[in-house]
């Protein structure tokens, strides 16, 4: 039993426990400030989150107020632009800057909540399937096959037909469909980790399955999961725009980056600003998430010594 605790301790300190323990906070902060990239990522995300939270105070105009006679006005630096609309207006004469600021709300909500849902489901399933193997593994992996073979547009249409079109339902659809990638990657990692000597040692020492799973295996397999999660946040934000492209997106007049990008695609030839600014916003946010994600991965990485 002592040996078990020792392993727990040695192992825990370099991994998840770090985040749990307030004592370690300074260490984390120091490592954060050492990494310029992570700092930059944090800064970008800070701006995005701030604009989402403070949208009503930051936005210069009402994001849904139309002024149809002033449609497609270019940004301020264009000779035809005006100071009233710093980034120009869209096809219904709405202020693009204000829509961008408000749009950060929806994009963040969609990106984060869907990843939270699908990541939690997927990682849990991956752990269980990989660790317990046999019929549990079979069931979950065949469920994954079914999920993958099933076109997600069909699910979107069905959900919308039954529950009606709304933001919540879009999150449900995206959240449900995203779990497979986590599950399969985590499972594959677990498959190779569970045979490692130290896991077998813990087993031999009488460690309980759940404890082994979450305390020893999870920290060792979480790293690709986190990389995937950071990628998925970006993918979900973009999927929302794909849904708009297919006519299944967030309801108007709610501004979303994906929806704005989709509306702007018609105007690529003659009003580039409609799509460029939401495109840049998505790109920067994705950059920020990736930079921060890299750092989290490095911090969590237990750097197993065998």
């Amino acid at each position: 039993m002592e040996a078990l605790e020792a392993i727990d301790k040695a192992h825990g300190e370099s991994s998840l426990a770090q985040l749990e323990k307030g004592l370690e906070f300074r260490k984390i902060a120091r490592s954060l400030f050492k990494s310029k990239a992570a700092l930059a990522g944090l800064f970008i995300l800070f701006i995005v989150i701030a604009s989402a939270l403070l949208a009503p105070y930051l936005a210069p105009q009402d994001p849904i107020a139309q002024d149809i006679n002033n449609r497609l006005k270019p940004p301020v630096w264009d000779p035809k632009g005006s100071r009233e609309h710093l980034l120009g207006t869209d096809h219904l004469g709405r202020d693009i800057l204000s829509r961008l600021i408000y749009g950060s709300r929806i994009s963040l909500i969609v990106g984060l909540s869907t990843v939270l849902i699908s990541g939690t489901i997927g990682i849990l399933i991956g752990l269980i399937a990989g660790y317990y193997g046999s019929w549990l593994d079979d069931i979950f992996m065949r469920l994954a096959d079914i999920q993958l073979a099933f076109p997600f547009i069909l699910l979107s249409i069905a959900v919308v037909a039954v529950l009606g079109p709304s933001l919540r339902n879009i999150i449900i659809v995206l959240g449900i469909t995203g779990w497979v990638v986590y599950a399969r990657v985590i499972r594959a990692e677990v498959l190779s980790v569970r045979e490692l000597e130290f896991i077998e040692a813990i087993h031999a020492l009488g460690g309980q399955n759940l404890r082994i799973l979450f305390r020893h295996i999870l920290p060792n397999v979480i790293s690709p999961g986190i990389v995937i999660a950071t990628l998925e946040v970006a993918r979900m934000i973009i999927l929302e725009s794909a849904l708009s492209f297919l006519g299944l997106g967030v309801q108007p007049p709610t501004p979303t980056w994906g929806g704005m990008l989709n509306d702007g695609r018609q105007y690529i030839y003659n009003a580039w600003w409609l799509a460029t600014f939401p495109g840049l916003a998505i790109m920067l946010t994705v950059l920020g998430i990736n930079l921060l994600g890299d750092w989290i991965r490095d911090t969590l990485d237990p750097r197993l010594e065998i």
């Binding site: 990628l231 970006a234 993918r235 973009i238 725009s241 794909a242 492209f245 994906g258 990008l261 989709n262 695609r265 690529i268 799509a275 495109g279 998505i282 790109m283 946010t285 994705v286 950059l287 990736n290």
Partner: peptide, 22 residues
Amino acid sequence: GMVIALLGQSMPVFWLGIMLIL
């Protein structure tokens, strides 16, 4: 490499496709 990967991730397919066509 990071920048390329980033571009690939943050561009919606329809947008990239239309841009390439243009």
